[in-house]
C-alpha cells in the first residue's frame, strides 16, 4: 500500500518535472525569439506610429491606431508641408528601390548564366588548370572588396564610366561569380553522370544536354546560388556608394544612408523606408529558407 503510494508520488513528481522542463524550454525559446524580434519590432513600430505616439516620452509601445501614411507617402506621395522632404527626395527613394531591383536581378541573372556555363565546365569537362583555377578564384574573392575598389574607381573615372548602373552590375557580378561557380560546380558533381552519357549517346550536343538534362535536375542548386546572390547584391553598400553619385542612380542601401544623413528627424518616414528596403531580402529569406541556408552555410567560407 505504502509502496504503491510512493510509486504514484514518484510518477506524479516525474510528470511535474517534465512539465516544468517543457515550460522552461518554452521560456528559453521565447528569450531567443525576443532577442531577434524586439529590435526589429521597434523599427516597425516607428514606421506605423502616428507622430503623436512616436514623439511621446516615455514612448507609447503599441501605437494605436496604426498609421500607414509613411508608407503611402514614400511610395506615392509628394511634398509634405513643414518638413525638409521634397518631392525630389521622395522620387529619389522610389528610384532607388527600382535601381536595387534592377541591380540585384541583373547580377543574379548574369551570375547564374555565367555560373552555370563555367560550373558545368569545371565539373564535367577537363579544364586546363582545372580545380586549381577555381581555388584561385575563391581566394581572390576572400579579399575585402575595398582593395579592388581603388583601382576600379580610378579606371572607371578615367573612362568616364562612373554613375552608371551597368558598371555597378558588372562589378558586383564579378565579385559574386566565383562563389556561384563554386556552388553550381558542386551541385553538378552530385548529379549522376549516366544520364548525361545516355543523352550524349543519343546524339545530343553538350548545350542541349545542359539545358534539357542537367538544368532541370540542378534547380535546387540554382535556387541556392540565386537567392544568396540576390540577397548579397541587394544589401551591397560600398560598391554602389562609391560608383554612383546622382540621386536617380543610387541603390536603396545608399539611399537609406543618405536619407538618414539629411532627414534623420523624419523618424517615421526613415523607419518606413528601412522596412521597405528590408522587405525583399526578408521575404526571400522566409520563402526560400531552405535554399538560403544551403547557400549561407557554404557561403560562410567567404566571410
Amino acid at each position: 500500500m505504502i509502496a504503491r503510494m510512493e510509486i504514484g508520488g514518484l510518477l506524479a513528481a516525474r510528470r511535474w518535472r517534465r512539465i516544468l522542463a517543457a515550460l522552461f524550454q518554452i521560456l528559453l525559446v521565447v528569450g531567443v525569439f525576443l532577442f531577434i524580434t524586439l529590435p526589429l519590432a521597434w523599427l516597425v513600430i516607428s514606421s506605423i506610429a502616428s507622430p503623436a505616439d512616436l514623439l511621446s516620452i516615455p514612448p507609447r509601445w503599441i501605437p494605436w491606431p496604426p498609421d500607414f501614411s509613411n508608407y503611402s507617402h514614400l511610395l506615392f506621395g509628394g511634398e509634405i508641408e513643414g518638413t525638409t522632404l521634397t518631392t525630389v527626395t521622395l522620387r529619389a527613394f522610389r528610384f532607388s528601390l527600382r535601381n536595387s531591383m534592377i541591380v540585384a536581378s541583373g547580377v543574379t541573372a548574369l551570375c547564374l548564366l555565367f555560373g552555370v556555363l563555367a560550373g558545368y565546365a569545371f565539373a564535367r569537362l577537363q579544364m586546363p588548370l582545372g580545380d586549381r583555377l577555381l581555388y584561385l578564384f575563391l581566394l581572390v574573392q576572400m579579399v575585402p572588396v575595398i582593395v579592388l575598389l581603388i583601382p576600379m574607381f580610378l579606371v572607371m573615372s578615367r573612362f568616364g564610366l562612373l554613375d552608371r548602373l551597368e558598371i555597378v552590375i558588372l562589378l558586383l557580378t564579378a565579385f559574386h561569380l566565383p562563389f556561384v561557380i563554386w556552388i553550381l560546380r558542386s551541385y553538378f558533381l552530385s548529379i549522376p553522370v549516366d544520364l548525361e552519357e545516355a543523352a550524349l549517346v543519343d546524339g545530343a550536343t553538350r548545350l542541349q544536354m545542359l539545358r534539357h538534362v542537367i538544368l532541370p535536375l540542378a534547380v535546387p542548386g540554382l535556387f541556392a546560388a540565386g537567392v544568396y546572390t540576390f540577397m548579397q547584391t541587394w544589401n551591397a553598400f560600398m560598391i554602389p556608394l562609391i560608383f554612383t553619385s546622382s540621386e536617380t542612380k543610387r541603390t536603396v542601401t545608399v539611399a537609406i544612408a543618405m536619407f538618414i544623413g539629411r532627414h534623420y528627424t523624419e523618424y517615421g518616414l526613415i523607419s518606413a523606408a528601412g522596412v521597405l528596403a528590408s522587405l525583399p531580402p526578408a521575404l526571400l529569406a522566409i520563402f526560400f529558407q531552405r535554399y538560403l541556408l544551403a547557400g549561407l552555410t557554404a557561403g560562410a567560407v567567404k566571410g
Partner: peptide, 21 residues
C-alpha cells in the same frame, strides 16, 4: 527561420534600426 532575419538585414538598415533604438 526568423534567426536569419537579423543577418539578412542590409547593413544600412541595421544602422537605422539601432540609431532608432
Amino acid at each position: 527561420g526568423l534567426l536569419i532575419v537579423p543577418w539578412i538585414l542590409p547593413g544600412t538598415v541595421q544602422g537605422l534600426l539601432w540609431s532608432r533604438i
